[in-house]
Amino acid sequence: MSGKDEVIVAEGLTKVFNKSLVAVNHVSFSVKSGEIFGFLGPNGAGKTTTISMLITILRPTEGRASVLGYDILKEANEVRKVIGVVPQEYTADEDLTGYENIMLCADMYGIPREVAKKRALELLELVELTRFKDKRVETYSGGMRRRLELACGLINRPRVLFLDEPTLGLDVQTRTATWNYIRKLKEEYGMTIFMTTHYLEEADALCDRIAIIDHGKIIAIGAPKDLKESLGGDIITISIKEGADVSNLIRSVENVKDVRNENGSYRIKAEHGEVTAPLIIEALRKNGYTVTKLSLTEPTLNEVYLEYTGRALRDSEETKEAIMMQRMILRRARGG
């Protein structure tokens, strides 16, 4: 089986809904103790479904998984005791105060009242909600709700924390603040964190290792840096004044691995971009072409995603829709 420092192990985990929709398709991975492991993928990729199986609220159709050595099916209750969960939705009760919500979570774990009170106050301090603890959650902003969810997920002092889209719908500033809380949990308390996101920057900034998931399948797995390096170099984009196709000329330059002509702008993949770019310009000039534009970028996870799926991982539209959904549900909940 797994080594001692492997906190989560999944083997061929699969979920099929309604006998036909394969939401998660034979995913296998392991998460090491003390690392932040991220599932990166677009909406509908199967991230929430995977988390739901790991936190024992959804039965896998096939495959197996364990958390801290406990089987998610046979020892579900042991798993539940040692994990903390921060769901994608705002689940706190609108009509109760922040403090009451945390205490309710504590009750779910059977934490004695006195101990729970102390922990709740500590956690409220940690997520900077002490000032608002006796206010109804109804009055909280999105960022405050997220933080409250986080505090609830920590009440049982979990050894593994599951975060489903922890910054969905938050503005940039609040998002960065949330990242800091998450980093703090890892660094100060050595917590193992499994999170999902569809924000490239988030996966890049926060995760030690990521699995890129698309249509229920893991298509790449590794540290963000390794994944980017595995693409084999930097991206150079060049435009020339003349109309001719110079792809072959560029391809003959040393270190160039791939050239794509995208409407007169050349997307070049090359090792050691900062050395190769001048060589390309040199070669073009020698042949009488004039370079009008040049840019050099190190590859981002978007390039990685593009490489494997042939599509860009675009945040904009899907995200807006998801946020709208969330807002609508909240409003309806309030409206009665």
Binding site: L96, D107, M108, Y109, G110, I111, L154, N156, R157
Partner: peptide
């Protein structure tokens, strides 16, 4: 914050959970 690492030794009894969830609704 002290000892976030300590394992959780508590376990909810049926009655405790039942009561907490009921009180939530009545509240």
């Amino acid at each position: 914050m002290s000892g976030m690492n300590g394992t959780n030794e508590y376990y909810p009894s049926l009655l405790r959970g039942l009561w907490a969830l009921t009180v939530r609704e009545l509240k």
